[in-house]
């Protein structure tokens, strides 16, 4: 792998993780805030709120995982490496 490909892969991996974590991070923060507020207001609905939070977190965090996987593939199993 030549140096330009290596440099581009490292930059792309950093961008994939960094940009891919912004949106899910904001979404998870606001979802957790709403869930904790909801549990504080309605403790009897804690099970349902936690279940919905779990499902929404799993879907949101999968976006982070996509970026993470792309970055790791670029770093450790680069398809552009000659």
């Amino acid at each position: 792998m030549d140096s330009i490909t290596t440099a581009a892969s490292v930059v792309a991996a950093g961008l994939a993780v960094g940009l891919g974590a912004i949106g899910p991070g904001i979404g998870q923060g606001s979802a957790a805030q709403g869930a904790v507020e909801g549990i504080a207001r309605q403790p009897e609905a804690e099970g349902k709120i936690r279940g919905t939070l779990l499902l929404s977190f799993a879907f949101m965090e999968s976006l982070t995982i996509y970026g993470l996987v792309v970055a790791l593939v670029l770093l450790f199993a680069n398809p552009f490496a000659g």
């Binding site: 403790p43 009897e44 609905a45 804690e46 099970g47 349902k48 936690r50 279940g51 779990l54």
Partner: peptide, 9 residues
């Protein structure tokens, strides 16, 4: 009721 809630989760 926390036992019921955690059971649901």
């Amino acid at each position: 009721s926390s036992g019921v809630k955690s059971d649901e989760y």
